[in-house]
């Protein structure tokens, strides 16, 4: 539920935004303000009643929608947004600081500059408070984001990028041309959403797995709207129950970890306190690595070929003999 405060803050932004951007579409406003179009229409009607005493027609805000576009004729001095509130400024600084880690390289330096520009626009007492509080709300982006700058330019300028990408599922490096559509951070990892010209489909790539990214001069046509965060989240979700099933069993010592990780999905308790896990359509590489990481507390039950593969790898690696290359699994992760 939207409370009064949040509602009024949105309205106090809506009017000056439309003053500056005549004919902004309802769809765009809805996207910007996180408000459904139907609710926006009601708010536009509501704003028609707002103005200054004595509330003659010329004293009221004149705002209207025509063919899905919004216009303001009389703004009644609501032509600039309200200054940042303490928490708006704080939110901006905290979110911006996600970039300010050594792992982010040049992006960190640029962001520090941008944050100091926001801070210097604040009244001095608020500036101090924001700087203090920003130490108490720490947003981290986690790992490095290689090629972030190249990829961001590619998204903006709609230029194809040639990448060399390590596919964890296939255990190999693949070269391809992609049309970058957007970037997104999820659970501490950065992802690129791009149309892969080889597969002719939209694909999600983790930035740390992109070994090389070269901006080309090939401009691509706009691809229509794409929900970048939604595409990433969908790609990260467990694959739907497909035809190929991997079954593993876990000892009681690690059963609770496993159940917590998968949120109970595909988990079946065993009489000894252990756990049986059913995974569908995961790659062999993932299944092998996942089972191996439990150091013997996990066993692959099926398919049998996968269990055999892990057994063979284990024999080589337990021996300690041979070079690491010789020990590497076929196609290895």
């Amino acid at each position: 539920m939207r409370d009064l405060n949040q509602r009024l803050r949105i309205l106090l932004f809506l009017v000056p935004y439309v003053v500056r951007n005549r004919g902004a579409s309802l769809a765009e406003l809805s996207r910007r303000l996180g408000m459904p179009e139907a609710e926006l229409r009601q708010e536009i009607d509501f704003l028609l009643m707002i103005g200054q005493p004595p509330f003659a027609p010329d004293d009221l805000i004149e705002i209207y929608e025509e063919a899905g576009r919004v216009y303001v004729h009389l703004h009644q001095s609501f032509d600039r947004p309200v200054n940042f509130t303490l928490f708006e400024a704080l939110a901006l600084v905290c979110a911006g600081r996600m970039f300010c880690t050594p792992a982010m390289g040049d992006a960190a330096v640029a962001m520090e500059g941008a944050i100091s520009r926001i801070l210097s626009a604040l009244p001095p007492e608020m500036r101090r408070l924001v700087a203090d509080l920003a130490e108490r709300f720490v947003f981290e982006s986690g790992e490095a984001a290689p090629h972030l700058s190249v990829l961001r330019h590619a998204v903006e300028e709609r230029r194809e990028v040639d990448i060399r990408h390590f596919s964890a599922g296939r255990g190999e490096v693949i070269a391809r041309s992609v049309r970058p559509l957007g970037l997104h951070l999820s659970r501490g990892h950065w992802y690129l959403v791009a149309f892969c010209t080889r597969r002719e489909a939209v694909r999600v790539f983790r930035l740390t797995r992109i070994q090389q990214a070269t901006l080309t001069d090939r401009i691509f046509d706009p691809m229509g709207e794409i929900d970048v965060p939604g595409t990433v989240e969908a790609a990260l979700r467990l694959p739907p129950r497909g035809s190929r099933e991997v079954v593993m069993s876990f000892s009681p010592a690690v059963a609770r970890w496993v159940r917590e990780k998968w949120g109970g999905e595909g988990c079946q308790p065993e009489p000894d306190g252990g756990l049986r896990l059913h995974l569908f359509d995961v790659s062999d590489e993932f299944a092998l690595s996942y089972a191996a990481s439990f150091a013997g507390e996990a066993r692959i039950l099926s398919p049998p070929q996968l269990a055999e593969r892990l057994r063979d790898e284990a024999r080589v690696l337990a021996g300690g003999a041979g070079s690491p290359a010789a020990a590497a699994p076929e196609g290895g992760i």
Binding site: A95, M111, R117
Partner: peptide, 12 residues
């Protein structure tokens, strides 16, 4: 800088 704030902000 605006683009960077949006990248970080939208993620948040």
């Amino acid at each position: 800088e605006l683009a960077m704030f949006f990248l970080a902000g939208v993620a948040a």
